[in-house]
Simulated scan of single mutants.
Amino acid sequence: MRICVIGGSRYFGRRVVERLVAAGHRVTVVNRGSTAPPPGAEHVVADRDDETALRAALGSRAFDVVLDQVCYTPRQADVARRVLVPRTARYVLTSTVEVYEHEDSPRPLREEAVDPRTVAVDLSLPWDDPAFAAAHYGEGKRQAEAVFAQDPAAAAAFAAVRVAHVLGGDDDFTGRLTHYADRIRTGEPIAVPAVNHPATYVYVEDIADFLAWLAERTDITGPVNAHAPGPLHTRDICAAVARWTGGTVVLREVKSGPVSPFSFARSYGMDNSRAAALGYPFRHTSEWLDLAVSETLGGQR
């Protein structure tokens, strides 16, 4: 297959490209040029936000699938809708669990809880302001899904993968597990909300496998939740970090103010039964949590 990956230069995006190349697909990676793609992939340097430059850089290329790893706003989606949708048979957007940020439910959420066909899109908001986009990450992803889902030319072959919080890998750039390791080593308190909910997670290698698998499945459209069975609480993650680093876990409840990265005052639970029904069973968190922690923390004992 001819597969275009937008982004794909780091973390699980890079792993997806490696898997697609290994499977024999002709992969084109489009990014701004700061990082070369894995060996075997064609590299097209372009700024996806610049419609004219993106169109010129792609030239006459056409694809069977576009896998968009770095679409964060409806404005970026709108550019992609015009430039990329006409030259591909299928569009797969890497979305996020954060699209459910307003759906606080005690039960795991199924995909229909947020239907992108009914989400309002506002391109007039300051999406080009990095601070605004970061503060409205979930809303940006929700509206990006909507841009494709509401376009008749794209909707029939559009899929959105709503990715849970990702753990693992020695190239995890987020620093979230290190936050816990630093405090557990010294016994420093870890801030959590008074009512602290578990959340859904996925192992970095498993989400890369799933995205590569989905790219080949032309019959799958619409939103798909992607996460491992077995929600994790802050204390579960801390226990795994403590097993690796040693030290003492001290959780401190706070009524207001900042809390640790994997602490949630609202539920972030997803239901992955659709992925399972489509033929992809994710591994349980108990099968990989300790491995994920050891990979990321490496020799930081």
Rank of each mutant, 00 (worst) to 15 (best):
V30D: 03
L177E: 00
G24Q: 10
C4W: 01
I207K: 03
E139T: 12
T94W: 01
Y180H: 02
Q76M: 15
E287C: 13
A57V: 09
E295C: 09
D129K: 10
V250F: 07
R48P: 02
A159P: 06
V21R: 07
A135F: 10
A242V: 08
N225A: 07
V147I: 08
A133H: 04
R243C: 08
Y137T: 04
V161R: 01
E188T: 14
L109Y: 07
H197S: 06
D271C: 14
R2Y: 09
R243F: 09
D271W: 08
P223M: 06
H284A: 15
R15I: 04
S124W: 00
L93Y: 02
F173Y: 14
E253M: 12
V45N: 04
G246D: 09
H165R: 12
S9Y: 13
A80P: 03
N31S: 15
C238Q: 05
P223S: 03
F158Q: 01
D129F: 13
A149L: 07
P229K: 08
R32H: 14
F282P: 01
S124R: 12
G7C: 08
A160D: 00
H102E: 15
L211S: 07
T200W: 01
A199G: 13
A226L: 09
A56Y: 10
N272L: 09
V192G: 01
D172V: 04
P37G: 06
A226S: 10
T118V: 12
T285W: 03
Y203G: 05
A89T: 12
D236M: 05
V192P: 00
V79A: 04
V163A: 02
V97R: 08
L289K: 01
I184F: 03
Y137P: 03
W288D: 03
A131F: 15
E216I: 06
N225Q: 08
N196Y: 07
S260Y: 03
G175E: 04
H179T: 10
D236C: 09
T248G: 08
G138W: 05
L93I: 07
W213Y: 00
V21L: 08
H233C: 11
S263P: 02
E42M: 13
I184E: 00
R176Y: 06
R15Q: 14
D209P: 04
S294N: 10
D49E: 14
R235K: 14
P116W: 02
I6V: 15
V92S: 01
C238V: 07
D115L: 11
A144M: 06
V29K: 01
R110S: 15
D171C: 11
V114F: 04
V259K: 05
R61T: 11
V17N: 02
G279K: 07
D219Q: 10
A208Y: 05
T245H: 05
